[in-house]
């Protein structure tokens, strides 16, 4: 049986810092990539910052506080299906952390961003000014292909971000649960469950 709703400090300050820095640098990197100057120095720096943030998140997933740990929120198909059954109820989830379905989105974003950083590092768009710093360590066919993967990655990131924002709006207006404030303050109303 679900317990009572209570307010807890869910997201630790470093995780929140990670989230908003990632949001900023991914957005900046994406926009600079699409609309920025021909010499993409700032885009490159955004990529390096994102790489550092991803390394932090990977580490935090093992040594951080419980809600940040992969072992805490990565669940099997049973738990995901169970969560989805109650998903469209017009009531807050009060979930204490990433829910089993949202966990998939977290993993997808981290994986796509890691792939995006990797393809960027080895890309050679044949313009002599925006060559990835590791392009010379792969074959010429690979560094040419990496440009294509990097473009595909940009589309996937856009898709995931639109989904992310869409789901937040769904929680806000359909389920009447604000997920943005907890990511700002760290405080969230949760209900403990036995599972």
């Amino acid at each position: 049986m679900p317990g009572p709703v209570r307010e807890v400090r869910l997201w630790d300050p470093l995780l929140r810092g990670f989230h908003w820095l990632l949001a900023f640098f991914v957005t900046a990197g994406w926009c600079l990539g699409q609309f920025g100057p021909a010499k993409m120095t700032l885009h490159f720096w955004c990529g390096y910052v994102v790489a550092g943030l991803l390394l932090f998140r990977l580490l935090w997933g093992f040594v951080g506080p419980a809600p940040a740990r992969f072992s805490h929120f990565i669940r099997g198909p049973g738990a995901i299906a169970g969560y989805m059954r109650g998903m469209f109820l017009r009531e807050p989830s009060h979930w204490p952390g990433h829910n089993p379905l949202g966990a998939l989105s977290v993993i997808a974003m981290l994986a796509v961003l890691a792939a995006q950083v990797s393809s960027g590092l080895i890309s050679d768009p044949d313009d002599y000014i925006n060559v990835g710093p590791l392009a010379s360590s792969v074959s010429s066919a690979t560094r040419a292909k990496a440009v294509g993967w990097h473009g595909l990655g940009a589309n996937l990131i856009l898709l995931l971000v639109v989904l992310h924002i869409g789901v937040i709006l769904f929680y806000r207006f359909w389920k009447r649960e604000d997920l943005v404030r907890p990511m700002l303050t760290g405080v969230k109303q949760v209900r403990d469950r036995e599972s």
């Binding site: 021909a38 010499k39 768009p125 044949d126 313009d127 002599y128 000014i129 925006n130 066919a141 040419a144 292909k145 440009v147 294509g148 473009g151």
Partner: peptide, 20 residues
Amino acid sequence: VVQKLGGACKACHDNFREKS
């Protein structure tokens, strides 16, 4: 000079070169 030339390379590659 390289930046100017590279920018011209990029401008065309972005639109007209298949990214294999």
